[in-house]
Design a binder for these strands. Sequence first.
DNA 1: ACGTCCATGTAGGGACTCTACAGCGACGCC
DNA 2: GGCGTCGCTGTAGAGTCCCTACATGGACGT
Lengths: 312, 312
Amino acid sequence: MDVRRLELLRELAERGSVTEVARATHRTPSAVSQQLRILEREAGLPLTEKAGRGIVLTDAGRALARSATDVAVAISRASALWDEFRNDPTGEVSLATFPTGGQMLLPGTIRRLDAVGGLILHASDRDPESDDFPGLTADFDIVLAHTASPAATNWPAHELAAVKLMTEPLDIALPPGHPLASKELLDPEDLIGERWIGVPWGYPFERTIHDISAAAGSPMNVVQRFGDTRVTEAFVAAGLGIAILPCYTAGGAYRSEIVLKNLRGVVAERHIFALMRPDRAERLAVRTVVDALRAEADAVVAANEHRNPPRA
Amino acid sequence: MDVRRLELLRELAERGSVTEVARATHRTPSAVSQQLRILEREAGLPLTEKAGRGIVLTDAGRALARSATDVAVAISRASALWDEFRNDPTGEVSLATFPTGGQMLLPGTIRRLDAVGGLILHASDRDPESDDFPGLTADFDIVLAHTASPAATNWPAHELAAVKLMTEPLDIALPPGHPLASKELLDPEDLIGERWIGVPWGYPFERTIHDISAAAGSPMNVVQRFGDTRVTEAFVAAGLGIAILPCYTAGGAYRSEIVLKNLRGVVAERHIFALMRPDRAERLAVRTVVDALRAEADAVVAANEHRNPPRA
DNA sequence: ACGTCCATGTAGGGACTCTACAGCGACGCC
DNA sequence: GGCGTCGCTGTAGAGTCCCTACATGGACGT
């Protein structure tokens, strides 16, 4: 019935507790509870049930919450339409990113947006280890996320809008004096017996290292695990092991002390996406930022293709 | 921004005046005017302009009104979803129909709906001559309309939901003693020189009579024009001319005094539709009525096919 | 047993939107 | 041209609705 109450139910479905919804919507828990109660009375059937200290949605509640998304999308679309009429993509957009994504894309994106003007982008980076990136879409308009294989993500595909920004190859990073540094292309078998600087459990590259093991027919020897590529690069530069790194961002302060080599026989790449709640994806300001991100991503790919032509 | 205000703008787009919107939404014109003013301030650009005593929408206003339809559809859909959860297609549904459509379909439809229970259908008939049937969708949930050629209607296709109910053949009605009454099938040429009991200008059958003239190569001689088929039937029964009549409803009190003949060489049929505003079409109660109408229409067609097998 | 956390009631204040009434320009009729 | 009608808009006030502040009560952990 009432749209604002439906919206509240949707927030509850995403955040899971009255208190969280209250905080996100700048209300007291009491206000949220009252509105949900009214909604439940209107609906004529229970939407929530108690679960320990908190509450959980019933099946009916979840179904209604899902339909609330469609309502929110329609409203956002209407709102965007009249922003278009004023030709006015003004507003504030919040964005969360993993560190290397922000490093690679955001400066150029901001420069592109400044050329348009009137749009404020609040960006911040998140720890890939501790944060649930799809879940961040509840609090950020745009979330940059990466995955080794889009098909294998557990992203709720129909609850989230996902825009592909780019595919970035993953390269093998070696110290300059390493015996393999003279080879043009590396094969998985070359890497047997090497000491690896890996990533924490659950990181996207983990899967790629696993694929290399499978292709080589021998497990890889991961001796260190770092989430921050700067640490990984320092270790590789110091000759303490080899690593897998995204090729457009790898190097940094150590660019002269690290050699990057392509790998054949294994699909080694990461896919970078912009994730959004579908209603937020409709906002004109958000769409403008996503367009800038896509343009910047294309530019980064083009610049690197030029330096480093595509492999077979 | 605000859904209720958007809805008001949509009503204004359909009804064309603040006073009409106020009447339809049970408000004072002042309230409507105030809300539109607020919406205009929020939109940041003029949505209406003065035109004589009244106002008209600007291009921007019309565009916003159109997007308001999508919002209304999403809300109706959400509302219907939870009616489905309660398995409760309760509510009141209003319906307007042309007379022969109501005569043919409504008694059976009501009987079907009574079997479900809890649903109240308010039906009324409208004069096909004086009423704008698509426009009636502003005031009725369902409007039954007929047309000789669906492609040639001026119905605003994307603003209205149209559900095809049935196609009804149009037959030539003759007095029993008429020379043509002995023929199995009539050809357009047979009808040259006959006196016709026609329909008022603008009625659907008018087009069919025109097609017959074209096929016969000679204009038909329309001497009387009646909107009500009972008058037409009385004239035919009295031997005062021939007419074209929808075959499932023709006859009535005069069934024994009228002969119906199929016509070949001309597409003589009318198509019966249920027209609805798209948001209303989503309501569960409305969908239930439409389903009953479709079932009844199919039954009518089947019953008549049985009596009168399909022609070549 | 006690503190904490979370949801939910109650009372009251504030914002919003409606009605009643009046004003004003446009149109048409005489 | 005067005058009545029609339609939109402004102002003041009343009613409704929603939110905050505060209190209550159940669930969990120590």
